[in-house]
Write a protein that binds this DNA or RNA. Sequence first.
DNA 1: AAACAGATGGCAAACGTTTGCCACTCTGCT
DNA 2: AGCAGAGTGGCAAACGTTTGCCATCTGTTT
Lengths: 347, 347
Amino acid sequence: MGSRSEVAQQSEKPQRAPTLANVAERAGVAISTASRALSNPGRVNAVTRGRIEKVAAELGYSPNWQARALTSGKVGAIAVLVSDVTNPFYFGIIRGTQRQLKASGYSQLLIDTEESDQNEDDLLHRLRSSFDGVILAASRLSDRALAKLADELPLVAVNRQTRGVPSVFIDTPSGVVQALEHLVSLGHRDIAYVSGPATSWSNESRWRALVKAASARGATMHRLGPFSPRLHAGAAAADAVLNTGATAAIAFNDLLAIGMLQHLAARGVRVPEQLSIVGCDDIFGADFCNPPLTTLTAPVEQAGRLAVTMLVAQLDGGSAPGQRQASVLPTYLTVRSSTGPAAEKEI
Amino acid sequence: MGSRSEVAQQSEKPQRAPTLANVAERAGVAISTASRALSNPGRVNAVTRGRIEKVAAELGYSPNWQARALTSGKVGAIAVLVSDVTNPFYFGIIRGTQRQLKASGYSQLLIDTEESDQNEDDLLHRLRSSFDGVILAASRLSDRALAKLADELPLVAVNRQTRGVPSVFIDTPSGVVQALEHLVSLGHRDIAYVSGPATSWSNESRWRALVKAASARGATMHRLGPFSPRLHAGAAAADAVLNTGATAAIAFNDLLAIGMLQHLAARGVRVPEQLSIVGCDDIFGADFCNPPLTTLTAPVEQAGRLAVTMLVAQLDGGSAPGQRQASVLPTYLTVRSSTGPAAEKEI
DNA sequence: AAACAGATGGCAAACGTTTGCCACTCTGCT
DNA sequence: AGCAGAGTGGCAAACGTTTGCCATCTGTTT
């Protein structure tokens, strides 16, 4: 058997973690009193409480979350669903949720849905009892399914606007218009939009915002894709852009944009002289790629934090349906070196 | 399709999740039978089982993990501790653990210790009941504390070699020697090592490997730091290197290396013409920074997966003490453009 | 002196599982 | 006939908490 330390030497106890019963016994009180001393301090005499606390500390007691969950219904954990742990965009979200959750005393259950709505729904129901609430970062669920889900459990969606679903929305659609203005002011008239996954809600809303804004500014948009929102998809995307004859491209996200940059460099197309590129999100790396990427800076970490704050409020405030709200976080354009004056059109 | 909706539509029940009792009642069997039908299929008649399974599906039953944990002692979750969620190095680990955990049917509890050993120990004890085992990615714990912990709970350490502690070790020390060879072959004789956090075990072992290898190859090592393993610390690190007069530098990690690249570019120092830079880890971005970074490619994701595999084996195999093992994963040098022939020494 | 209120502590019933043990019903065998 | 043994199903006791309710004790008010 594994040679534990002191205690095990003597008696061959299985070394179970100390329970409330142990504390109570050693302090000479009933379990209920011990429980109250630790979680409802006002309810018990100061001196008794002191004794109990002392014993608890000696024994290194810490409450069993499982058992507690059984009666209280609260498990003290929140699930964070991302559609792809691999995507740096989510790192920012995760960072934000992690920090805020910790500050609120919750644990973070990280779940990767692998871009599948089926998976998303399944996992959520299978693990229903393991968390108090959910943060859906870029859910692939349909509006209908999402609304239904929001009815069944406490939830905050990130980057999603659906009636009746509390959400934190990073306003890239209006940011993307800033990008358009920037390009138009540099003389670009033919602009490509390199779109992301077909199931992405953000993708759609960005495109709509672009078309609308473009016509008012005398620019023509070309929609390309869908492309996988990954680095390696940038190659195909870059080639597609080249074919349209557009002088600038706005990509669904920075991953695609950086991938394009790489491929363009390999093909000898100069950025921004021959083609301007704009990304979305300002992920890690956007500032040190070559050339540094002009992109929409999204307050991703803040979004994660805010989502947690809203969710926790929802949990504590007893899901008052009126409290449902949607926050909007602004984005702004960060101009770096991947955009420049439009190339002369060769006639 | 939505098999869950029907019931809820009708009555305004508090919408509690269906329990085994509900299933049993509706199937006309005892709770124990229902339990066995679902988790110990051989123990109950095929036709009864069929009926129970059908009812369970209808009701959308899924077992309560908390309750199950109470009797079985298994919660179905594994904690992954990282010292800083912000650090891209851990993204690889997290990605690996996430995938393998999912495949093994476990959930992932992600915990950020914020570089504090105090935090690490605390959190682990407070949450002890919420996970079955732990993966410590780059623990800041002392060898002694770590060994003690490994005795108390199932654990696998990543990038740490301590007697009696199962671990996955990414062999950067020998990789770093490859880097040294590379630099020496390019004519470098004065080489700086830009070290990371003082508490980092890897940092120490890399330095030792370097000194040892350097003397045999007639090169001189300069130790600088400690520096925070962050991008922004690269500026200070770069200046420090410049002061030593070294013609090449090996950085504790890519973050530092890329930070140095940025600062050097700003100062007008050409890489690799005037100074060669080598990083460690080959994180996201190392291939597209400017210039692309020569670095030690570490199989990070694989390390995460392997750690999970080992941990799960430990959990299932009932902590056979003999099974304790340490795996070593090799690294290799990926040469890109941040290294080149040594600059002529101006006399 | 009686009655009352507040403070304090204990009993026991939940919460939703798993599982050891017992009871019953069949077969098939001696 | 009697019975061993397998195949099924149920009872009830855990697991470690929380919490409603009751009992006791103390001091205060009438």
